[in-house]
């Protein structure tokens, strides 16, 4: 990625983290709220690859944890793995397909939700797993899937770089 691309991606991640911490997390619909930062990290992973995705997740998570005075590193850990997974998906199976953002948003919202729950449990937080998994997670998945394509388009426009090229066909000669 070029220097300008890195700067633009950093700006997108910072804006996503800021909006998530200040606004989006309070927009509760049907018991759950969308996760804008997760969608931004997924999009960057799909567009730029696994390492930029993981770095974006780590940095965005750090900003959110700083803004909300939460335990440092928890959101970073969840989003690092989400960004990496989205990047690997973009580098392999998703190449040349149209709807990876939707699938990645649905799968990663669930995985990130469950992983975050386990992480908080391991850190000794009092949790209501039923509320987190059955009440809050399904509407969050729906909201993230609905927002996935607009956010992906916005991130692609903001980063202004071409998507990962589709894998070239390889002919095996024996």
């Amino acid at each position: 990625m070029s220097g300008g691309g890195v700067a633009r991606a950093s700006g997108v991640v910072f804006a996503g983290a800021l909006l998530q911490a200040v606004i989006v997390s309070s927009l509760v619909v049907g018991g759950g709220s969308p996760d804008l930062l997760l969608l931004v990290v997924i999009s960057l992973g799909l567009l730029r690859g696994s390492i930029p995705g993981a770095v974006a997740g780590f940095a965005g998570g750090l900003v959110v944890d700083l803004l909300t005075l939460d335990t440092l590193g928890v959101t970073s850990l969840v989003l690092t793995l989400a960004g990496f997974w989205a990047g690997r998906y973009g580098e392999t199976t998703a190449r040349g397909r149209r709807l990876p953002p939707l699938l990645a948003a649905a799968v990663l919202t669930i995985l990130a939700g469950v992983f975050a729950l386990v992480l908080h449990y391991m850190l000794g937080y009092e949790l209501d797993a039923r509320q987190a998994l059955l009440t809050a997670l399904p509407p969050a998945v729906v909201a993230n899937v609905l927002l996935a394509l607009p956010v992906h388009a916005l991130v692609r426009w903001a980063v202004r770089e071409r998507e990962l090229e589709p894998a070239t066909e390889v002919e095996v000669v024996v």
């Binding site: 911490a21 997390s25 959110v64 803004l67 909300t68 939460d70």
Partner: peptide, 13 residues
């Protein structure tokens, strides 16, 4: 000025 994300903490900043 802020609301921590997720269903794990009911908190504001």
């Amino acid at each position: 000025i802020g609301r921590p994300a997720g269903a794990f903490a009911q908190a504001i900043v």
